[in-house]
């Protein structure tokens, strides 16, 4: 068996993954164009749906947005502008979409980040415990509860929480306008506003991590190397902690990143329910208009973010699992 050359392999692996990610990013950009410029047939009509407009007004609008040029030329314009960070102007607010996204980016990152970390921690902990105590009351109850939460629409859970605990927590937004501008007061206020949205997001999302961790641990339970570990005289908890969990964790890590898209989806509706001033709420507000440049911008940014996170996951996985390293 030839011994694997690690250095060359890693560089090649990274290049392949990077190349794949670049292709995917380009596909997102193309898809963004097709969805919002080609498929609507006539974006101006979609835009003015339900409003009385004259043909001259339509023509002016078409010219303003460059929609009277051939599609290929439009795509080229769109591509060049994107590369300069120009996502066009919002129909609704007549502001550059890029600026709007930048403003709304960090509240979404805060919400999704906090939610993911808490959900992963909770899911892994519950999943591990459930697998150890297979078929126990804890296993059955925790799995049942996780499935029940998983079956609920995120936004509905948010609405119910809002109705039930509305008095204790702010009903929406991120900060009260009258909070003192010093760091501590601001942070505490944001935290106060964050509680309900994060609980909602975590409740719906954690189930998948728990179920995956549970089943991948159960898969490992029959593995021969655990018999070896037991034969060596290790205590049961050491057998689990040192040998079973590191192996079971690997497939779970991939899933955490693969499901990031679903967390983002959950965040959109949570932001809509709690008026959290992030990309999700921006999307929600743009749907009714419909503000196509804003939708296009958030689509591209959210998709690209998830793609980049997955690229990071691939790289991370390579350093976590020695078996992948050798390929």
């Amino acid at each position: 068996m030839p011994s694997p050359r690690r250095g060359g392999g890693t560089a090649r692996y990274l290049l392949t993954k990077l190349g794949g990610a670049v292709i995917s990013l380009f596909m997102v950009v193309v898809l963004g164009f097709i969805l919002f410029r080609v498929m609507p047939g006539d974006p101006v009509k979609t835009m003015t749906r339900g409003h009385p407009v004259t043909n001259e007004q339509l023509a002016i609008l078409e010219h303003r947005y460059g929609l009277d040029k051939p599609k290929i030329a439009q795509f080229w314009d769109y591509l060049v502008k994107l590369l300069h960070g120009d996502f066009g102007d919002s129909y609704q607010y007549s502001r550059p979409v890029g600026d709007m996204i930048l403003e709304k980016l960090w509240p979404t990152v805060l919400l999704v980040g906090t939610g993911t970390i808490l959900a992963v921690a909770l899911g892994l902990w519950l999943g591990t415990r459930a697998a150890w105590q297979r078929n126990s009351v804890f296993d059955k109850a925790s799995t049942g509860i996780a499935l029940a939460f998983w079956s609920m629409p995120t936004f509905w859970l948010g609405m119910i929480l809002l109705t039930a605990a509305g008095g204790l927590f702010p009903s929406g937004g991120m900060v009260y306008p009258d909070t003192p501008p010093d760091f501590l007061s601001q942070a505490l206020d944001i935290l106060h506003h964050l509680v309900l949205p994060v609980i909602t997001l975590v409740a719906v999302v954690y189930a998948q991590y728990q179920l995956v961790m549970r089943s991948s641990l159960l898969e490992e339970m029959d593995a021969d190397y655990l018999t070896t570990a037991r034969a060596k005289g290790l205590r049961d908890d050491l057998v689990r902690r040192r040998h079973a969990v590191p192996n079971a964790l690997l497939p779970t890590v991939t899933l955490v990143f693969l499901h990031l898209g679903m967390v983002v989806a959950g965040a959109i509706t949570v932001e809509a329910v709690f008026s959290w001033p992030g990309l999700g709420q921006m999307t929600y507000n743009a749907i009714g208009v419909p503000d196509l440049p804003v939708l296009q911008g958030t689509f591209i940014v959210l998709a690209a973010a998830v793609l980049v996170m997955n690229l990071i996951a691939d790289v991370l996985y390579r350093f976590l699992d020695p078996r992948v390293r050798a390929v």
């Binding site: 021969d224 018999t227 037991r230 034969a231 005289g233 040998h243 590191p246 020695p322």
Partner: peptide, 23 residues
């Protein structure tokens, strides 16, 4: 547990699976 491996040890069938793949 103290007897295991110290007094008697095992060479398992199929070393591929009897060794922990990530250690």
């Amino acid at each position: 547990r103290t007897v295991r491996w110290a007094s008697a040890s095992v060479v398992f069938q199929g070393a591929m699976h009897a060794l922990n793949p990530v250690k």
